[in-house]
Amino acid sequence: MAGLHHKDRWLLYLEGFQWGESVRKAARRCGINQKASFNWRHRFLALPSDLQARQESGIVEADEAWFLRSYKGQRHNLPRESRHRGGHASKRGLSSEQVPVLVVRDRSGATSDAILPKDDHLAIQAVLKPLLAQDAVLCTDGGGKGPFALAARKMGIAHRAVNLSKGIRVLAGVYHVQNVNAYHSRLKGWLLRFHGVATKYLGHYLGWKRLLERFGDYLNSALWLTLAVGQHEVQQCLGT
């Protein structure tokens, strides 16, 4: 972690990751300035944000969540006027002002997500093809048409599509998207504490939430540091 000082405070700082502490409060608690606190947050999240499921099998649910495109922290060359503490899109419904995030979960809880460059079957297929086992059954919303259905056909993956807008929530008693949609709800609720997340750092926050879900109470500051910088740095901080 070249360039980061005060190693003796890293573990103290990372305690706040468990409850999603703000940059300002973490700085005050650890006796560092806000710029350092911000830099620490994203340096410590950079590597863990890539830790996600590499393969999912069985019944696999997939759905998109949409997040407001944000230039938070950027003060110059904005493509629009800045918003205040998150704000709202100027257009109703889905638009280029929002960013699609594909979340994929199997019934064991294995979770993967990806910020899509575009909301189409090619972007979806690029995420799902290396992720899904060949015998997986993909469950999505939207009926038998649309980008998910096309991506599944292109990959040769079995596909079961519910249609929530028409009240079709479960097929054959087992095929649904309730788990992935519940995850969306928890993710969006958790993100509210940050009053808007810059799109350039959205992947870090997605990874943060994934790790909280995966490890729960076991995710203490020592484990965070191990995931972020490796065991050697942890031993130095602990003096062992």
Rank of each mutant, 00 (worst) to 15 (best):
M1D: 03
A2I: 07
L4E: 08
L4C: 08
Y13E: 03
L14P: 00
F17R: 02
Q18L: 13
G20T: 12
R29N: 11
R29W: 06
C30N: 09
I32M: 15
N33Q: 05
Q34D: 15
S37Y: 05
S37M: 11
N39F: 02
W40N: 04
R41Y: 10
R41I: 00
L45M: 10
L45E: 07
A46T: 06
Q52I: 03
A53N: 01
A53L: 07
S57G: 13
S57K: 09
G58F: 09
I59N: 09
V60G: 00
D63C: 06
D63S: 11
G73F: 09
G73H: 08
Q74E: 09
H76W: 10
S82G: 14
H84Y: 10
G86N: 09
R92I: 11
L94D: 09
E97T: 01
Q98L: 08
Q98A: 04
S108D: 15
S112Y: 10
A114V: 02
I115E: 05
L116T: 01
D119R: 15
L122F: 13
Q125M: 14
Q125K: 14
A126V: 03
V127D: 03
L128D: 02
L132D: 10
Q134V: 11
L138C: 14
G146F: 02
P147R: 12
A149S: 15
A152R: 07
A152D: 12
A152W: 03
A158Y: 03
H159M: 00
H159N: 03
V162Q: 04
H176I: 07
H176E: 03
S185L: 13
W190Q: 09
L192P: 00
V197N: 07
K200V: 09
G203Y: 08
G203T: 06
Y205C: 08
G207D: 04
R210Y: 13
L212F: 11
F215Q: 07
S221F: 01
S221M: 02
W224A: 11
T226C: 04
G230D: 01
Q231F: 04
T240S: 08
